[in-house]
Write a protein that binds this DNA or RNA. Structure first.
Length: 199
DNA sequence: CAAGTGATTAGC
DNA sequence: CTAATCACTTGC
């Protein structure tokens, strides 16, 4: 049986906005401690197009210990810590030294939902993975995932559902009020009507 | 609606 | 070194 992991060429394409939209319907998979699969379908994602994009961590070509991961080759995981509590899972795109990334904002649980319930302790199912910090808790994603290859064993993305463009909506990104002219770019994509899209 | 939380960053 | 900020979540 061939691997269903997305190939390198999916990630190294030049247009991060296209890749963010294409990631909808794909399956983000992480192994649980017992070796079983924990996974969710991507239902919401945002493109960050540094160095030009004021909202991106790599804006202006900023290169620090944290942002260094964004400069790696497409298909690398970029996981960062924010607000003193939460991790955020991103997919690096483009080729080396073009610091683009897609933030995964929400998933619809598919496999291993018992693991998600345990980690999110007693939240209603619809709140397990409907936000970028929540989905990292549910899947057990922390900074040890930062810089890892999305075609490796730590976390990966598989071909999932193919969506017609009619089912996809777009709008401004969330939580980037500081981004001046870039605030209104419609680079957030989600699956219309999906109940796991973040609030 | 506002607090909480601590790594990260810029600026001395 | 210090202080402000932050690609969020939860509980009031």
């Amino acid at each position: 049986m061939p691997s269903r992991k997305l190939p390198r060429e999916f990630y190294t394409r030049p247009n991060v906005v296209t890749i963010a939209r294409d990631l909808l319907g794909k399956l983000l998979v992480v192994p649980a401690p017992d070796g079983t699969r924990v996974s969710g379908m991507i239902v919401e994602a945002e493109a960050y197009r540094g160095p030009a994009d004021r909202a991106a961590h790599s804006y202006g070509g900023r290169r620090t210990k944290r942002t260094e991961t964004m400069y790696k080759i497409g298909g690398t995981a970029y996981v960062f810590f924010v607000y003193g509590m939460y991790n955020q899972f991103n997919v690096v795109t483009n080729v080396i030294d073009f610091p683009h990334a897609v933030l995964i904002r929400a998933l619809e649980p598919v496999e291993g939902i018992e693991w998600m319930r345990e980690r999110r302790h007693a939240q209603p199912d619809r709140n397990l993975t409907n936000g970028p910090g929540k989905l990292c808790i549910a899947l057990g994603i922390d900074r040890s995932f930062d810089g890892t290859d999305l075609r490796g064993k730590q976390a990966w993305i598989e071909q999932g559902e193919t969506l017609s463009s009619r089912r996809i909506a777009s709008g401004p990104r969330i939580g980037i009020d500081y981004a001046e002219d870039w605030v209104d770019k419609p680079w957030r994509f989600w699956i219309k009507g999906n109940e796991f899209v973040s609030k």
